[in-house]
Structure formats: structure tokens, C-alpha cells
Design a protein around this nucleic acid. Structure first.
Lengths: 352, 352
DNA sequence: TCCAGAAATGTAAGCGCTTACATTTCACGA
DNA sequence: TCGTGAAATGTAAGCGCTTACATTTCTGGA
């Protein structure tokens, strides 16, 4: 490449590896201010000059230095999001919608994942702030008090999604995990199931998992089944863990007749294990999930699950954050509906 | 919160929303240089002073301004990665390994997705550069010449993964898509299949898809089956698209007896559609995938597919990039093995 | 006790950009 | 022709940090 060798660029001296505003200005024979205006407020520069400048920008392959810009202008057009995991698709669709909505308004998204650890999340929040995030999307309400302090001190707008926060605390956009899980459990109970098991994510530091578990108990109580009878296994979200938990449950006597899973990933693992063990679902055991990610439709039997309004949450969160950033009032939290999707994996309790 | 109101912070004046080095220095009664050293080279500061400074840092909730730091030090400890999509799990595991390896060395990862569009990818490259990415991971080789020019000009180390680039061009770490797909196709042909169909991703701008398709033709030719007989459908990676493509193929007479899919996601869609249409897999039609993501094991029947060394690629790419960034030589491209995983979805061709 | 050299700390010059303010240029009516 | 206000452009002061270099403060042997 000619332009990689000094002094050969069409007779021009080699401009350095990373051209600066000044380089562009020199080449276009204008001041740096004019170049800056060309880039940020083109209408304030005359047609002729603008063309000359843009030509120089192109010729030099100039790209503004983000850090310098952030420093000088004190704005970044960058939002952040911290999700618990990217390993599975649970948050993918919601995040996609979030990003699309931001993109439409010229905002860049920085994504980090916390691996379900509040300490790591606090760390990530610091990083996002340092990188100039002007607003932050968080999942759920459980986190260290310092996390909230950091955000409040810096006056950084933040919204929590995937949950429904009432009263004090951060603005939320989401659904009622407890209510949704209670509704699903009610359906299970209506099918005659009495020996229920729940495969939950670890509930410490995860309000969604906790609320879902509470929802199960609540529904059991409402149907006159002692919540204490619930067999509960906690294990991190993963297919393998779901399979293992299912195997453990099937080793119990009497066996549960319905295995509720904290999300679709665990449920998919349960189904795989059932197939491996030759256990018929839903003939011998019913299985349910939560989230309604694509996976739920693909497994055999297809999962009965709770449909979560991923895209609506993502897009709504983006709109709320942009409004907050612009100093507008977004009112209280917003509760969306999570609905139950009845597919094949839930059937009547086997007699006996 | 007391510290949110001016003049109440234990008698101290309110330090401003975002404390700076100078604020910390003032509070600790040292110069900004000392504070900076405390943060970047603690061993160069006396124990007593360090404690005082750290105390001030904590009290003020100070976090260094990333942009300012990048500007002054001309380093960011940030790498970038651009993957085609986050929608499905194809790249998730590899990216995870990549990130873990970088994290171990204190490097932050910035991820962007290009939606399989070279133009968008070029845009993303610009953004990553502007944000100070010191090295970049890319998927595959197909991209605009400008993309490569940008990276070369800025002397930004980059590695392409998921592919095996020989000769000139960027360093790669990956596997031979053509060879892998040819091997899989050979297995299919050995099962007696002669009417083959391929559901591929759009091949324009996607060398992996192109090479996989070529692999199919190559194997057919080698087995004396005219490659022209291959029925090829191009459609973007998604479960729904896989299902639709499968339906279209099954409408043909005679039907193909084996449907090769460009990846597991398309194959999962095909299987779903087969179930819906009451077509037995592999009894009536065989189906294969590519990638061996978790999904492949979960669907019914489990997918015969090509196992891609995701984690090895991710970790290897990280190591190569770090070496390059440190000015070390990493030698030529590295080819990993992709192996065939035989599961249930591939069986002998039905007679007739 | 004194002094050399090491260790600790301070001073100040930028890094590349934006923008308030100052200056120049332009278009147009008198 | 000139004067005027608007439009275009330039000047220069930072934004918050790092770091070369200068200065001060220790430490311990003679």
C-alpha cells in the first residue's frame, strides 16, 4: 500500500498513523474549528468549504477520537446495558430491540455481562460510567447498594427491566414475575398435579428467580396444597444443569409429577434428560419453562411456558432512558403483561 | 442521600457530580501526579500517602475518565470484536472464550454486530477504532477493501476467525469450512443419498457460507454425483427461515432425501417444520446442521452436524491479538480441526 | 553530623477535540 | 460607492488525565 510508506502519498508527507483534526484542517487549509463544525453542524459551514474539508477527511481516513470528543463536549451519545449473561438467548431479543431503538436515535450501546454476580455488576457499572454511558439499562432489582449510589451520585438515568418495581427505587419496565409464575402454577395444579418440583436459578441476588419461586408457593397455597411440599432445586441456568436437576428429581420416591423450571433453558435440559431416561413428557411427568425464547418451540415436546414481552421491554426501556436523559419525566414504572403459552409439555397428572 | 446536597458532606463542600483527579488530589492534599501514580503504579508511592489517596478516592466515589485517560496515555486496554449476529448462539461460546482470555489480562472487550452486512461492519470498525480499540477480532474474510485499509493504516492488529485464510491477507484462526462440509457431505452420500438439498445462508459477503456450499459440490463430484443436481436455497440464518426453506424443498417432486443446512439454526427450523408436516427424520428425510451449538443436542432427532472448535478459536484469537498488540510475531494462520458429530438426524436414504 | 543517592512528590506540558468569542468576509440596499 | 448585519471563519481556552523532568525528602554509611 502506497500510503503506508512515508513520503509517497501522492507527494504529500505521510500524515501519521492516526490523522487528527489538525491534519485535516491543514490539508483543507482551514482552522480546526471549521473542520469540527463540518462534522458536527454542517449547515454552519459554506458549501465550498465543506466539500474541501470532507475531501480531506476522506483522503486522510480521518475518524474523530472518541475520548477527546467526550472530554471536550462532555457528551458521548452512548448508553450502557448490563445483562446477567450472553451465554443463552434469554436477553438477546430484548437487548436487540433496545439497541435498535437507540440506534434509530444515533446512540451507541455498550453491553456488559455480570454473570449473575452483583459484585461484578457493580464493577461493570463503574466501567460503563467511566466510558461515558449517559444512561444505563439494568436487569432486575437486586444489586449492591453501592451500585445505586454510584448511579444516583452521577445523576445517571437508569431503568430496571425484567421486573416490576413498585414504590420507591428505580423506574422499572417489566412484568410481575410472581404473578406470572403463580398463573402458570395454577394451570399445572388444575391439571391435577400435586407433587410439584421447581428447578430455580440461585435466588440470592436474583429477584426474578425469587419472585418466581414465591409465585409457585403462592399458587400452591391458594389451591390448598402445602407449599412446604414443593421440592426445590437451585442451579445456575444452563441446559446441562437442567438435565442434572431433572435426573435428581426423578430419583426421588415418590417422583414429582410436574417439574416447573425457572426458565426455558433449564426446561430444555430437563426434556433432554427425560428423553435420555426414557421418561415420557407429559405422559409421566409434565415440564414447564419460563421466558418463551425460540428454544421453547423447538424442543420436543414443545414447552408450555410464560411468554415474556422481550421486545416491548427492550424498546420501552430505550424510550424511557432517552426521555430521562433529555430531562423529561417518564412517570412511574410500567408493567407489561406476561402471558401463558400452552404447548405440549404440560398434561394431566398421571393417575396414582 | 446527604452527599447529594451541597455543603452537607461532613462539612466539606460538595465536590461536583463527577469528581476529578484534582478533587481527589485536593482532598488527599497531594498533587494530581501522585494520585495518578497511586492508581497506575501504586508501588511508586509511599504506603502512607497511598492510603490517604485511596481513602479520598473512596470517599469521593472517584472513577477515572476513560476518554481523558485514553487521550493522555494513548492506550485503552480495549479490544474490539465484530460478530455477524448476536441473535442466535452461533458466536456466543467463541466470544465468551475470547472475552475470558482478554479479561485475564485486564483487557476490556467492545462487541458490535454487523448483521452480516459488510457496509455496516465497516462502520463498526470505524466506531471501534474511534473508541480506541487496540486490536480487533473479525469473523470470516469477506469485507470491504476499505475495512482492511482502515485497519492497516492505523496499524491495528486484527485476526479473522471462523475461517482458514491461506497466503496473503489477515492472520486467521479457524477451520476449513469447505473441507468440513465436504466431509459431512461424504457421510451423507455414503448413506446412499443422491438427491441432496442445501439450505445456505446468503453467500454474498459470507465466505463461510460460500465455502460450505463449495464443500458440498466438491464431495458430490468426488462421489460421481453431478453437483448441478444440488438444490440450493439461500436464506438468512433463522429458525423460521429454516422451516420455510424445508417446506419449499418438501414441495418438490421428487423430494430430496437429505437436506444439508448451512448451520444448526436453519437445521432446527427444518426439523420443526418436518415435525409439523409429519415427515419422519431420518426415516423419510435426513437433515444435517453445522456448528454444533447446544441446540443441536436438544432438538429431536438430535442433529448430525459439524463440531466447530468455538472455544479454542475464541481463546486462540485473544492470545494472537494480545501478542500482536505487544509487537510479537504470531506466525502464520492457525488451522483447527472441525469434526463431524454423528447423531440421529442422518440415516440411510429411503429406498425408491 | 554530613552527604550522596534513592525514593517520593510536585510542576507543567500536552493528548485531540469543542465552543465561546473575536474577527473577517459577504450580500445587498441606500 | 459605502455601510450594515448576517454568515463564515478563526483564535484560543479548556475538558481530565499521564508523564518527563524538576524538586524535595528520606536513608544510611563515613
Amino acid at each position: 500500500m502506497a500510503e503506508d510508506r512515508p513520503g509517497t502519498d501522492g507527494g504529500m508527507a505521510w500524515e501519521g498513523i492516526s490523522p487528527t483534526l489538525e491534519d485535516v484542517a491543514a490539508r483543507a487549509k482551514v482552522s480546526t474549528a471549521t473542520v469540527s463544525r463540518c462534522l458536527n453542524a454542517p449547515q454552519r459551514v459554506s458549501e465550498r468549504t465543506r466539500e474541501r474539508v470532507m475531501e480531506a477527511v476522506r483522503a486522510l481516513g480521518y475518524a474523530p477520537h472518541f475520548g477527546a470528543r467526550a472530554l471536550a463536549a462532555n457528551r458521548t451519545n452512548t448508553f450502557g446495558a448490563i445483562i446477567p449473561t450472553m451465554e443463552n438467548a434469554i436477553f438477546a431479543r430484548g437487548l436487540q430491540a433496545f439497541q435498535e431503538e437507540l440506534g434509530r436515535h444515533g446512540i451507541t450501546l455498550l453491553v456488559a455481562s455480570s454473570s449473575y454476580s452483583p459484585e461484578l455488576e457493580e464493577e461493570q457499572i463503574r466501567t460503563l460510567i467511566a466510558r461515558g454511558a449517559e444512561a444505563v439499562l439494568l436487569i432486575g432489582q437486586d444489586r449492591t447498594p453501592e451500585s445505586y449510589t454510584l448511579l444516583r451520585r452521577r445523576r445517571i438515568p437508569h431503568v430496571v427491566a425484567w421486573t416490576n418495581a413498585r414504590g420507591e427505587g428505580p423506574v422499572s419496565i417489566g412484568f410481575d414475575n410472581r404473578k406470572a409464575m403463580a398463573a402458570l402454577t395454577a394451570r399445572v395444579l388444575e391439571q391435577g398435579h400435586r407433587r410439584l418440583a421447581l428447578v430455580s436459578a440461585p435466588r440470592a441476588g436474583n429477584d426474578r428467580a425469587r419472585e418466581r419461586a414465591e409465585g409457585v408457593s403462592e399458587a400452591m397455597a391458594a389451591h390448598g396444597v402445602p407449599p412446604a411440599d414443593l421440592v426445590l432445586i437451585e442451579t445456575p441456568y444452563s441446559i446441562t444443569n437442567g438435565a442434572e436437576a431433572f435426573a435428581r428429581l426423578m430419583a426421588r420416591r415418590p417422583r414429582p409429577t410436574a417439574v416447573l423450571c425457572g426458565n426455558d433453558v433449564l426446561a430444555a435440559g430437563a426434556l433432554r434428560q427425560a428423553r435420555e431416561m426414557g421418561i415420557d413428557v407429559p405422559g409421566e411427568v409434565s415440564v414447564t419453562g419460563f421466558d418463551d425464547i425460540e428454544l421453547a418451540e423447538i424442543v420436543t415436546p414443545a414447552l408450555t411456558t410464560v411468554h415474556v414481552p422481550h421486545r416491548a421491554m427492550g424498546a420501552g426501556a430505550a424510550r424511557k432512558l432517552m426521555a430521562l436523559r433529555n430531562g423529561e419525566d417518564v412517570g412511574a414504572s410500567e408493567e407489561l403483561e406476561a402471558t401463558i403459552v400452552w404447548r405440549e409439555s404440560l398434561g394431566p397428572a398421571a393417575v396414582g
